[in-house]
Structures are given as structure tokens and as C-alpha cells.
Measured scan of single mutants.
Amino acid sequence: THFTSQQLQELEATFQRNHYPDMSTREEIAVWTNLTEARVRVWFKNRRAKWR
């Protein structure tokens, strides 16, 4: 999946605040970024792996 810079900005900003967002937070992010909750969940999983 290719993310727009706007989507990445929103995802990264949320990641800085919370590395493990809950389901409702992921659903909110999905609405803001026009992505599915599953895409958001996978992005956070991959981002945490990169962060370690």
C-alpha cells in the first residue's frame, strides 16, 4: 500500500503519542486518513518493528 504524505503525517503523529493505539483509536485514524482499520493496524505493527 502506498500512503500519501498526509496519511503518513497523521499516522506518524499518532505513533509519537501512542505506539499501541486501541481499536477505537485505529478506527478514528482510518476515518481521518481514508484507510481501512486493517491497513492502519498493519502500519502500526510494521512501524513498531522499525522503531525497535
Results as ranks from 00 to 15, higher is better:
residue 19 H to C: 08
residue 3 F to E: 03
residue 21 P to D: 01
residue 1 T to E: 12
residue 38 A to V: 11
residue 4 T to Y: 05
residue 25 T to I: 08
residue 27 E to P: 01
residue 48 R to D: 01
residue 5 S to G: 08
residue 43 W to V: 00
residue 3 F to Y: 11
residue 43 W to F: 03
residue 52 R to I: 08
residue 34 N to P: 02
residue 28 E to A: 14
residue 3 F to D: 02
residue 47 R to E: 04
residue 25 T to M: 13
residue 16 Q to M: 10
residue 35 L to K: 05
residue 50 K to G: 07
residue 4 T to P: 03
residue 33 T to L: 15
residue 5 S to W: 14
residue 25 T to P: 00
residue 20 Y to Q: 03
residue 8 L to A: 06
residue 42 V to E: 15
residue 16 Q to I: 09
residue 33 T to E: 02
residue 13 A to S: 10
residue 11 L to M: 05
residue 29 I to W: 02
residue 51 W to P: 05
residue 45 K to E: 12
residue 1 T to Y: 13
residue 49 A to Y: 07
residue 37 E to C: 05
residue 41 R to I: 05
residue 40 V to R: 00
residue 17 R to Y: 08
residue 27 E to I: 15
residue 49 A to H: 08
residue 40 V to F: 01
residue 34 N to C: 08
residue 30 A to K: 01
residue 46 N to Y: 13
residue 42 V to W: 14
residue 36 T to Y: 03
residue 52 R to M: 09
residue 51 W to D: 09
residue 28 E to S: 10
residue 14 T to Y: 15
residue 36 T to S: 09
residue 15 F to Y: 07
residue 33 T to H: 07
residue 39 R to T: 14
residue 18 N to Y: 06
residue 27 E to C: 14
residue 44 F to Q: 00
residue 16 Q to Y: 08
residue 19 H to S: 05
residue 20 Y to N: 06
residue 20 Y to G: 01
residue 46 N to R: 13
residue 16 Q to F: 07
residue 10 E to H: 14
residue 13 A to P: 01
residue 50 K to E: 13
residue 36 T to V: 04
residue 22 D to R: 06
residue 12 E to D: 03
residue 43 W to K: 00
residue 38 A to R: 10
residue 30 A to P: 02
residue 15 F to S: 00
residue 37 E to P: 07
residue 30 A to D: 01
residue 34 N to V: 05
residue 43 W to M: 00
residue 45 K to S: 08
residue 10 E to L: 15
residue 9 Q to V: 10
residue 45 K to M: 11
residue 12 E to W: 05
residue 11 L to K: 00
residue 49 A to D: 09
residue 28 E to R: 13
residue 26 R to C: 06
residue 28 E to Q: 14
residue 7 Q to K: 04
residue 45 K to P: 00
residue 3 F to S: 02
residue 50 K to V: 10
residue 48 R to Y: 04
residue 43 W to P: 00
residue 46 N to V: 11
residue 40 V to W: 01
residue 8 L to Q: 07
residue 13 A to T: 08
residue 36 T to N: 05
residue 40 V to I: 08
residue 1 T to P: 12
residue 52 R to T: 07
residue 8 L to T: 06
residue 9 Q to R: 12
residue 29 I to E: 01
residue 31 V to Q: 13
residue 52 R to V: 08
residue 5 S to P: 13
residue 48 R to T: 03
residue 17 R to H: 09
residue 15 F to W: 07
residue 20 Y to A: 04
residue 12 E to R: 02
residue 47 R to L: 04
residue 42 V to T: 12
residue 31 V to H: 13
residue 18 N to L: 06
residue 16 Q to L: 10
residue 7 Q to N: 04
residue 35 L to H: 04
residue 27 E to M: 15
residue 38 A to Y: 14
residue 36 T to W: 04
residue 43 W to N: 00
residue 10 E to W: 15
residue 18 N to W: 07
residue 38 A to Q: 11
residue 20 Y to P: 01
residue 35 L to G: 03
residue 7 Q to I: 07
residue 40 V to E: 01
residue 34 N to K: 09
residue 30 A to N: 02
residue 18 N to M: 07
residue 29 I to C: 04
residue 24 S to C: 12
residue 38 A to T: 09
residue 15 F to N: 01
residue 21 P to H: 01
residue 21 P to Q: 01
residue 14 T to N: 15
residue 27 E to A: 12
residue 49 A to V: 08
residue 7 Q to G: 03
residue 3 F to Q: 02
residue 36 T to I: 05
residue 30 A to W: 04
residue 33 T to C: 12
residue 22 D to A: 07
residue 39 R to K: 14
residue 45 K to Q: 12
residue 3 F to W: 07
residue 6 Q to P: 05
residue 38 A to H: 11
residue 19 H to D: 02
residue 18 N to P: 01
residue 29 I to M: 04
residue 10 E to R: 15
residue 51 W to N: 07
residue 5 S to L: 13
residue 1 T to R: 12
residue 35 L to I: 06
residue 47 R to C: 05
residue 10 E to G: 07
residue 40 V to M: 01
residue 37 E to N: 04
residue 39 R to E: 15
residue 37 E to Q: 05
residue 9 Q to S: 10
residue 3 F to M: 10
residue 49 A to S: 08
residue 40 V to L: 02
residue 33 T to N: 07
residue 26 R to M: 10
residue 9 Q to G: 06
residue 44 F to M: 04
residue 45 K to T: 08
residue 23 M to E: 08
residue 32 W to F: 14
residue 44 F to N: 00
residue 11 L to I: 02
residue 47 R to I: 02
residue 16 Q to H: 10
residue 49 A to W: 08
residue 48 R to G: 01
residue 23 M to Y: 14
residue 51 W to Y: 09
residue 9 Q to H: 11
residue 49 A to R: 14
residue 25 T to L: 11
residue 13 A to Y: 10
residue 28 E to H: 10
residue 41 R to V: 04
residue 18 N to K: 04
residue 46 N to F: 12
residue 50 K to A: 12
residue 12 E to M: 04
residue 24 S to H: 12
residue 8 L to Y: 07
residue 26 R to D: 02
residue 30 A to I: 03
residue 29 I to T: 02
residue 49 A to F: 07
residue 14 T to G: 10
residue 4 T to G: 04
residue 39 R to G: 09
residue 34 N to W: 05
residue 49 A to I: 09
residue 7 Q to E: 03
residue 30 A to V: 02
residue 37 E to T: 05
residue 9 Q to L: 12
residue 32 W to Q: 15
residue 26 R to K: 02
residue 17 R to W: 09
residue 11 L to F: 02
residue 18 N to R: 03
residue 6 Q to I: 11
residue 49 A to Q: 10
residue 14 T to C: 15
residue 17 R to S: 08
residue 40 V to G: 00
residue 13 A to M: 11
residue 52 R to C: 11
residue 14 T to F: 15
residue 25 T to R: 09
residue 2 H to D: 11
residue 4 T to R: 04
residue 51 W to H: 14
residue 12 E to G: 00
residue 8 L to H: 07
residue 22 D to Q: 04
residue 40 V to S: 00
residue 14 T to P: 01
residue 22 D to P: 06
residue 34 N to T: 05
residue 27 E to Y: 12
residue 20 Y to H: 07
residue 37 E to Y: 03
residue 30 A to G: 07
residue 21 P to I: 03
residue 50 K to P: 03
residue 35 L to F: 02
